[in-house]
Design a protein around this nucleic acid. Structure first.
Length: 704
DNA sequence: GGTGACCATCTTTTT
DNA sequence: GATGGTCACC
């Protein structure tokens, strides 16, 4: 019986996948190319482990988002007709948070420590910078964003500040002593106030593991099998954490693709994946090289993209699928032409029977889709957008959350600072004074009542202190939030008087989110560690998956696939980003990013680039096509151009070409018609450019 | 000391 | 288009 069923699902795997699924013990490295069934392999392996009698809670599945983990476990459960939900899953950061709530006391942290997101961390750095007197005028001192990423790199890559500064920010070299002092101060400050930023979660979890053998043992016993997805995007610290957690048994499988590494900017290093065998002697290496996702023409283009990469990669993708349409390169007049093209193609695809949810538009940076969003809205094409600004990053949401953080960790002075500044009549100076009183108190909330005040802000302070005390009495997260919002609304209207109605809707979304949580600390941790993607949109309580197009940054599209993919704004300065063009390593990462984008497509791929547009500072400029397009052979795509201005013109063009006609093309120049494929398509041979298949609807050809 | 108005400055990607 | 900084005025 069991054997029968096992065969039934194991049969669906190819030999390499099967090998990975059945390699249960010892360290295994799976190099999985794009679309090679990586997720499926992980899912089947979870199922296999459970079927072999491993209790689900003994399995740890580390993924890039919790959503990815949930989805995999759902699929594994379906396979077995038995729940795998109790498998522990999530991101490195959420695991570390969970573990530190238990074991953090060993290194002096209460279970209620506060997690700082990137913005909080920057605020803290800024605060300390001024208190150290490092922000006087006229000094060229790095900005808080720069400092934050500098500190983060130092922690994640285990390098010295001096080294990073010298290599990557030589112009700040003279400030090294101050920067080091600030870093030390920042570390001390967080420790003192029970704060941890993203990096601390990893750093301290690693410290606990390495300093306390008994914890290591306990954890090893608890998680007997460890799996890590997207291993190419982990860093040294994370690799060390895996090593320590698996010390007792060595049952670790990591899965990744070095050509899809796109997170170096936050300390990831794709060489990590190549070093795994050194970290775990006796590692079995399995390569998944057969692509099941894309058609050959799409794969040809993808392979050509990665071919240009400087480093030699470890595998080569192939597919057994034949046929399929060539990718299309669309040269748009400007951004609005690009948007119109995408919108119209989407409608045509829908006519052809492609569901909207099978179509995605991908871009380098969130703001690249602004124009398109307007166009889609105008045409009533439903879409959701991923990436870009998060709910939690909006100032008004941070205000509300700061109050909640105080309830959990009354020593979180950063939140106190924010909360106090919201009071009318309180500025930085007064906030400082009040905080000096709170700092000394054992119960800061209670102490607030006894703080000496001035008439100008006394009433506000009373209201705050009363509200906080009332909130302490409530336990339900949702009720707390409702009560808090009653207090906050007048502040919202005063502080954001220009646009508070819009912001008020975000507060409602926050309330919807809170509804799911019974525990405040869980709510706050999730908000910081797994922030909801967009404002309002995806918070509607499970409106049965409406059919909609996906707009996404490429980073947020990782691991997903669609029938049709549009990549837009493929021009120099945007993709590759202007920030990356001066560093060869960053440029390489941009190229891998492009590779990730094109390998998301199964059947159709459209590469779009406007030839004019706006660049910050310059205004309207001519945009050069992305070097990632220019360096490829034009054979790899079909070339389309902007739509005709008038309808009449199109019909005119569609008629009457015959083989042998000589035509003139705005880009390729003179050519000879070789074959008329349909009313709209002709094949033309151009001198110096070879044969092209052109879509007459999108080109302007002149007959000579 | 706080507030509000005005200006400049940039806008990458994310746990 | 939002945030940060400077300045004049209360």
């Amino acid at each position: 019986m069991i054997k029968e069923r096992r065969r039934s699902y194991l049969e669906e795997l190819n030999p390499a996948q099967l090998e990975a699924v059945c390699a249960l013990f010892g360290p295994v490295l799976v190099i999985a190319g794009a679309g090679s069934g990586k997720t499926r392999t992980l899912v089947y392996r979870v199922a296999r482990l459970v079927e072999e009698g491993v209790p689900p809670e003994r399995i740890l599945l580390l993924t890039f988002t919790r959503k990815a983990a949930r989805e995999m476990l759902r699929r594994a459960s379906l396979l077995l007709k038995r729940s795998c939900e109790r498998v522990a899953g999530g991101t490195f950061h959420s695991l570390a948070h969970q573990m530190l709530r238990t074991y953090g006391r060993l290194i002096g942290f209460s279970p209620n420590f506060t997690v700082l997101d990137r913005g909080d961390a920057e605020d803290a750095i800024n605060l300390l910078r001024s208190s150290l007197g490092l922000s006087e005028k006229g000094r060229r001192f790095p900005k808080k964003e720069t400092l934050a990423s500098l500190f983060s790199k130092a922690v994640n890559q285990g390098r010295a500040l001096a080294e990073i500064l010298e290599k990557e920010y030589p112009h700040f070299g003279e400030h090294l002593p101050e920067i080091e002092r600030l870093f030390a101060e920042y570390q001390r400050y967080k420790r003192e106030h029970q704060l941890m930023d993203y990096d601390d979660l990893l750093l301290y979890w690693h410290r606990v593991l390495s300093d306390y053998p008994e914890v290591r043992e306990e954890v090893s016993r608890r998680f007997e099998f460890i799996m890590v997805d997207e291993y190419q995007d982990t860093n040294r610290l994370q690799a060390e954490i895996v090593r320590l957690m698996a010390e007792g048994h060595g049952n670790v499988m990591v899965v990744g693709d070095d050509s899809q590494s796109i997170y170096a900017f936050r300390g990831a290093n794709f060489r990590n994946i190549l070093e795994f065998p050194r970290l775990f002697p006796g590692t079995r290496i399995i390569k998944l090289e057969e692509n099941y996702r894309s058609t050959q023409p799409i794969l040809d283009l993808a392979n050509a993209v990665i071919e240009k990469a400087q480093e030699k990669y470890t595998k080569c993708l192939f597919t057994r699928r034949s046929g399929g349409e060539k990718p299309v390169r669309y040269r748009a007049r400007d951004e609005s032409d690009q948007s119109r093209f995408v919108a119209e193609r989407i409608l045509e695809l829908r006519e052809e029977g492609v569901p909207l949810s099978e179509i995605a538009v991908l871009f380098r940076a969130a703001f690249h889709s602004f124009d398109l969003e307007l166009e889609l809205a105008r045409r009533d094409i439903p879409f959701v957008k991923y990436g870009g600004l998060k709910l939690i990053e909006a100032a008004h949401i941070k205000d509300v959350v700061a109050h909640l953080k105080i309830l959990l960790n009354p020593f979180d002075l950063l939140s106190w600072h924010r909360v106090l500044l919201l009071l009318e009549g309180v500025g930085p100076r007064t906030a400082e004074k009040i905080m000096a009183h709170l700092r000394a108190a054992s119960d800061p909330v209670a102490a607030l009542k006894k703080v000496p005040t001035r008439p100008s802000y006394e009433a506000g302070l009373r209201r705050l202190s009363q509200t906080l005390e009332e909130l302490q009495e409530i336990s339900s997260v949702e009720e707390r939030l409702e009560e808090l919002l009653d207090y906050y609304r007048p502040i919202l209207e005063r502080v954001y008087h220009d646009d508070y109605p819009k912001r008020e809707r975000d507060l409602e979304s926050l309330l919807v989110l809170a509804h799911r949580y019974g525990d405040l600390s869980e709510f706050l941790a999730d908000l910081a560690l797994e922030p909801p993607e967009s404002t309002v949109a995806d918070l509607e309580p499970e409106t049965e998956r409406e059919d909609h197009v996906v707009l996404s940054t490429i980073h947020s599209a990782k691991g997903l696939e669609w029938h049709t993919v549009f990549v837009i704004s493929l021009c120099e300065g945007r993709f590759p980003s202007a920030y990356a063009v001066n560093s060869p390593e960053e440029l390489e990462e941009e190229r891998r990013l492009f590779y990730v984008a094109v390998t998301r497509a199964r059947e159709r791929l459209y590469l779009c680039h406007p030839i004019t547009g706006y660049l910050p500072g310059e205004g309207r400029v001519i945009l050069k096509p992305s070097r990632f397009l220019e360096e490829l052979s034009p054979e790899l795509w079909e070339e389309w151009r902007d739509m005709p201005d008038q309808e009449g013109e199109a019909e005119d063009l569609g008629e009457g070409f015959r083989p042998g006609d000589i035509v003139w093309h705005p880009r390729f120049g003179e050519g000879e018609v070789r074959e008329v494929l349909s009313a709209e398509k002709v094949r033309i041979y151009f001198l110096g450019h070879g044969e092209k298949t052109l879509h007459l609807k999108f080109v302007r050809l002149e007959r000579l």
